[in-house]
Design a protein around this nucleic acid. Structure first.
Lengths: 214, 214
DNA sequence: GTATGTGAACCACTTCACAGCA
DNA sequence: TGCTGTGAAGTGGTTCACATAC
C-alpha cells in the first residue's frame, strides 16, 4: 500500500515542472533544490521532501539533472500524454477559454464545446462547432472525456457538472462562481479571479497605515 | 499585537460572503454553520472557528443573520469600497480580463490598461484606451492604484511586476506563468488554469479514488 | 566540500466536544 | 432544545538537521 501523498504536494509538482522546463530551454543541465527553491519561493527542504515521495532523482553533492527530473515529473503527473477536454458555456469567458493557446501545447485538447444559447449554437470557433448543451449526454456517450471545463453562469453550473459527471468526466475546471457538489471520485479545481481579489483586499485594507514605497 | 490570522482563513471568507449573498438574494434571513457548511463543502466547526477570529456574529440556538454576517464580512475584507486596478498586457487574455463583467459589480474598477505592442496601443476597449507600457510609471505617478493585473507573456511579467510595485501597487493578480518575486509587503495571487489541469491529471492517471478535493 | 534524502521535531490548521446562551 | 464560540486535542504539512553519497 503506497503512502498517501498530500494534495499540496501534487499541486506543487507542476510548478516545479514548469521551472525545470524553463531551465532546460536555457540549456541548464543540473540544478540544486537550493537554486530551484530560490527561483520559486519555496524552501529547498520542501522540494526535496516533495520529490522524495516519488523516488530519488538527485545526486548528492551535485543536484538534479534538469532533463531527467522534468521527465520524471511529467510521467508522475501524467503529462506525457494527451487529455481530452470539453468546454461547457461559450459566453465571453468560454470563448476566451476556447481561443486560449496555452492548453494544446501542454497536451490538453478541447474536443467539444457546448452552450444553451441558440445564438451561439452552431457557431464555429477554431475547428469546433458549438453544440447544444441539451444534447451533451448523447454527444459524449460514445467518447472518452477526461476533463470538463465549466464556464456557464452560476445558475446553470451545478446541473452541467452533474451531466458531465454522468458522462464519465472525472475532473472539472470550474470557472463558475459556485461551490460544486461532486462525487468523491471527481476532482474539481476552481478558478475565480474575484475570490482572489477579495482575499487580497483584506491585506490592502489592514495595511493602509503603510506608506507606499519610494 | 493582534492575533495572527491564517491566510487560509482569509481565503475562505470571500467564499462565505458569496454564499451569503446568494442566500440573501433568495430571501433567507438566518443560516446555521451546519447549513452553510453543507452548501460549501466545509465543516461547520471550520466556519465557526474562522468567524471567531473576527467577532461573535451568531446567536446560539439560532444561527447567523444572513444580512448582518454578509455586511460584517464585507467590512472585514474591505469589500465595502471601491478598488482601483490596472491591467498590463492586452493580448487575448488581457482583452478578456478587460471585457469581463464580473469585476466592476464587486467594486473592482479597471482604470488603466497597458501593452507593449504598437498594434494594441491606442486601441479603445470599453471606455479605456490602451497606453504604452513604457509610459506606465508616468501614467501611474499621479494616481493611487491598489491592484495590478498582469496578463503579459512570461518573459515580460517580472519586469512589469517590478514596475507596478515601484508605482505603489500592493496586490497583484498574476496570470503569467511565472513565480513572481515581490517585496514582502506585496501580495500576489496566481491564476493559471494549466497548473490546475496538470495537478488534476495526477489523479486521473490512476483509476484509484484518492482523497476527495477540499 | 557539497547537496540529497529522510526520520524526527516542530508548527499550523482542523476538528472535537462541551460550556454557555437564546 | 439548538446552535454558537472556543479551549483542547488531533492531524497533517513543513522545516530541521544530519547521515549518506558523490
Amino acid at each position: 500500500m503506497p503512502i498517501e501523498i498530500p494534495d499540496v504536494v501534487i499541486d506543487r509538482l507542476p510548478v516545479y515542472a514548469r521551472a525545470l522546463a524553463s531551465l532546460d530551454r536555457q540549456g541548464r543541465d543540473v540544478v540544486s533544490s537550493q537554486e530551484l527553491g530560490a527561483q520559486l519561493g519555496v524552501t529547498p527542504a520542501q522540494i526535496r521532501k516533495d520529490l522524495s515521495y516519488f523516488g530519488r532523482f538527485g545526486k548528492q553533492g551535485r543536484g538534479y539533472n534538469v532533463k531527467r527530473l522534468l521527465e520524471e515529473l511529467h510521467q508522475i503527473l501524467g503529462l506525457d500524454r494527451k487529455w481530452r477536454m470539453v468546454v461547457v458555456g461559450v459566453g465571453q469567458l468560454g470563448h476566451a477559454v476556447l481561443s486560449y493557446g496555452g492548453f494544446a501545447p501542454q497536451g490538453f485538447d478541447i474536443v467539444e464545446a457546448f452552450d444553451a444559447d441558440a445564438s451561439v449554437i452552431g457557431k464555429q470557433i477554431g475547428d469546433l462547432v458549438v453544440k447544444p448543451v441539451a444534447a451533451m449526454r448523447e454527444a459524449l456517450a460514445g467518447q472518452h472525456i477526461d476533463i470538463g471545463i465549466v464556464a456557464t453562469p452560476a445558475a446553470a453550473a451545478q446541473q452541467v457538472i452533474d451531466a458531465l459527471v454522468e458522462s464519465g468526466v472525472r475532473a472539472i475546471l470550474n470557472y463558475a462562481p459556485i461551490a460544486a457538489h461532486v462525487p468523491r471520485h471527481v476532482r474539481v479545481k476552481d478558478i475565480d479571479p474575484v475570490l482572489s481579489l477579495q482575499s487580497m483586499t483584506f491585506y490592502l485594507k489592514s495595511d493602509l497605515a503603510h506608506s507606499p514605497p519610494k
